[in-house]
């Protein structure tokens, strides 16, 4: 799969940061909006996929080394470990329950603010471990989906090479 025209390349390069930032926003506001780790991660990964399509797999594979792929896999593992690890922390801190939200309503910590009852303005500094889990899931999804797209692109390159 070769790259597309210069116009597409340029436009996608310009749009890409915005897509990424939007995706990160969705991840970060996962506990307040219908978004979350998966949705935001999917947005970011689709931005990456757009770049891949625009520049073509040949160019991308030339740029990417084996090292980068293994970093991608490590990030994926780290995301998953972060998620399940937070669940394990629930067994260690506070009341010892798996998936215990041990950070919620603890004013001293990040994301520890208490939500007032009734209609309030959105406060990102709430919800305890939920945002952290969203970050972990986001990381996992970005790495995972990008990995999938990348490998599929790699396979198409193989076919053309034959």
């Amino acid at each position: 799969m070769s790259g597309m025209s210069k116009i597409v390349k340029t436009i996608s390069s310009i749009i890409f940061p915005f897509i990424t930032i939007y995706g990160l926003y969705v991840i970060a506001h996962g506990h307040l909006t219908p978004g979350g780790g998966f949705q935001g991660g999917a947005v970011v990964a689709s931005g990456l996929a757009m770049l891949l399509v625009a520049y073509g797999s040949v160019w991308t594979m030339g740029k990417l080394k084996e090292k980068h792929l293994s970093i991608n896999q490590t990030l994926e593992s780290v995301g998953a470990i972060g998620f399940i690890g937070l669940a394990f922390f629930g067994l260690i801190f506070g009341t010892k329950i798996f998936f215990n939200n041990f950070l919620v309503n603890k004013q001293d910590y990040l994301f520890g603010a208490t939500v007032k009852l009734g209609e309030t303005a959105a406060n990102i500094n709430t919800a305890g471990i939920l945002p952290l889990m969203n970050f972990a899931v986001g990381l996992k999804v970005i790495a995972g989906l990008f990995g999938i797209v990348l490998l599929m692109a790699y396979a198409t390159r193989l076919k053309e090479g034959k």
């Binding site: 896999q73 593992s77 998953a80 470990i81 399940i84 690890g85 394990f88 798996f98």
Partner: peptide
């Protein structure tokens, strides 16, 4: 259930 899951994600590392 959680230990195999954690183990699964630790294995690549």
């Amino acid at each position: 259930v959680a230990i195999p899951l954690l183990g699964a994600f630790l294995t690549p590392l």
